[in-house]
């Protein structure tokens, strides 16, 4: 299967195939790269990534570091004149890359926090402070408040093999190596 079709097929069941099909009509205008806040500081070149996908450069795209530099801010997605669903396509490519063992360390790290705490970004003092200011309870009604729910999340992680995907070590409760 061509890489383009693989991306569309992978994202289809969750995001809708029409949504994913928009990948095919990118006209290479660069509006996405031009406004990408991550690209100002990092090496991500959104349009080039889309073009590489269109040209079926599977290995290059899946193994590239820039794939993980998108902040999923959806700026490109909102502005694209051809309505290419850029960010969702990027996320889908990441899913494929993840399955192939290309998950970036930083993303594996964030994922390990989900297993450990139920949150990709666990609460800290600053957040607690802001919550108080906004009139919210200091601790949100999530695994932070309901410790038992964390067990459920960990069971899910095992059942879906999410732990294997990110190389999680249950002994050390950390990433392997």
């Amino acid at each position: 299967m061509e890489f383009v079709d693989e991306i569309i097929e992978t994202g289809g069941p969750i995001l809708g195939s029409e949504h994913m099909e928009t990948l095919r009509v990118c006209m290479q205008c660069g509006k996405c790269t031009g406004g990408c806040p991550s690209g100002r500081l990092t090496a991500i070149r959104t349009r080039k990534m889309i073009l590489s996908a269109l040209l079926n450069m599977r290995d290059e795209v899946l193994s590239s570091d820039e794939l993980w530099l998108c902040t999923t801010c959806y700026t490109c997605y909102e502005r694209c004149p051809r309505n290419v669903k850029v960010t969702d396509i990027t996320r889908t490519i990441r899913n494929i890359a993840g399955r192939e063992g290309y998950l970036a360390k930083s993303h594996r790290m964030a994922a390990s926090y989900v297993i450990k705490t139920g949150h990709g970004v666990p609460i800290n003092d600053a957040v607690k402070e802001s919550r108080k200011k906004l009139g919210l309870s200091e601790i949100p009604p999530t695994t932070h408040a309901y410790k038992d729910a964390l067990k459920g999340i960990q069971t899910l992680a095992k059942k879906t093999k999410f732990d294997e995907l990110i190389d999680f070590d249950w002994e050390t409760m950390n990433l392997k190596e």
Partner: peptide, 28 residues
């Protein structure tokens, strides 16, 4: 310059800043 302008805003000196990818150089 081949690339569609993504955004325009005012810089500190009061001049406009135009963000665009130079697509042929693959460089925003």
């Amino acid at each position: 310059l081949r690339g569609i302008v993504s955004e325009v805003y005012r810089g500190e000196n009061g001049m406009m800043k135009v963000r665009v990818e130079n697509t042929l150089m693959v460089e925003p």
